[in-house]
């Protein structure tokens, strides 16, 4: 087959994706500029003019940023240890990451509603250790939500990090040490830059999954607390206000795309460095 003839093999999939998601997303974009009386920017002006909408966007970004930061801080050392592990231990640990990753979000969310309840396991444990006398309210709080989001997306951080840490040549750190660098210096100047692709990949995944999370906020926070995705769902499913929903959808879409573009840029720069 000629090198160009092979192009046609990609046509069915490309066509399917064009018709099944590129076109619908474009229509969503068009819809967001479509008010009751024809074309207008009212959807956007009312969205960005509303302090509530802003607070929802900021809240969504804040939650995603915090979740990404926590996943990185916990996940990086965990991934390093996972790379140190050998044989069956490593297999078991990888399985412990893959099982929650493959498991239904709803099942995990359900588990957290049980864990976070006032008479749930966490409160019982805290009281048992004497850390608190009265039960702490966790379910329907942002802390609880953050715990849930972190729990669901942590494997998406650890696995890319593990992949890039495992590729590190252990001799590199030794070479750094023979050149007179202390362990902290070696880590900052050798190990960290070399694992940057893993950090970027994991960070991008966790952040973009977090801003788009819908099931977890719905289950752990209820209807009163809104993030960008729950706003969209509410607008479409309950308020029957497609323009408002479309605008919020476009805002979320643009945020996701910005994250992806930023990660590609960062990835190139870390490769060039």
């Amino acid at each position: 087959m000629s090198r160009f003839g092979i192009f046609w093999l990609s046509v069915p999939a490309t066509l399917a994706c064009l018709l099944l998601f590129a076109l619908p997303l474009s229509l969503l974009l068009v819809e967001s500029f479509h008010g009751r009386d024809g074309w207008s920017l009212t959807g956007y002006t009312s969205f960005f003019g509303s302090a509530y909408a802003w607070s929802v966007v900021l809240r969504t970004v804040r939650l995603a940023t915090l979740a990404t930061a926590i996943c990185l801080i916990v996940g990086y050392p965990a991934a390093v240890a996972l790379a140190w592990a050998r044989g069956w231990l490593q297999s078991v640990l990888v399985a412990c990451l893959l099982l929650p990753l493959s498991l239904s979000v709803i099942v995990k969310a359900f588990g957290w509603t049980v864990l976070l309840r006032a008479n749930g396991v966490i409160n019982l444990a805290l009281q048992g250790m004497g850390l608190t006398s009265a039960p702490i309210r966790l379910l329907f709080t942002e802390t609880g939500l953050l715990i849930g989001i972190t729990n669901i997306f942590l494997p998406f951080m650890v696995l890319p990090l593990f992949a890039s840490i495992r590729q590190l040549d252990p001799r590199l750190a030794e070479a750094g040490a023979t050149l007179g660098g202390g362990p902290i210096y070696c880590f900052l100047r050798v190990v960290l830059p070399l694992t940057m692709p893993g950090i970027i990949a994991g960070g991008t995944l966790v952040f973009s999954l977090s801003i788009a999370a819908y099931v977890i906020p719905t289950l752990l926070m209820g209807d009163a607390y809104q993030t960008l995705p729950t706003t969209i769902a509410t607008a479409f499913l309950y308020l029957q206000d497609p323009q408002r929903g479309s605008v919020a959808g476009v805002v979320l879409l643009v945020m996701s795309l910005l994250v992806v573009v930023a990660s590609v840029r960062l990835g190139r720069r870390s490769e060039a460095a």
Binding site: A212, Y214, G249
Partner: peptide, 15 residues
């Protein structure tokens, strides 16, 4: 993979 599922959902619904 990187797009918010909810946005895909509403876009497909309207489409």
């Amino acid at each position: 993979l990187m797009l918010p599922g909810l946005v895909l959902g509403i876009a497909m619904l309207q489409y």
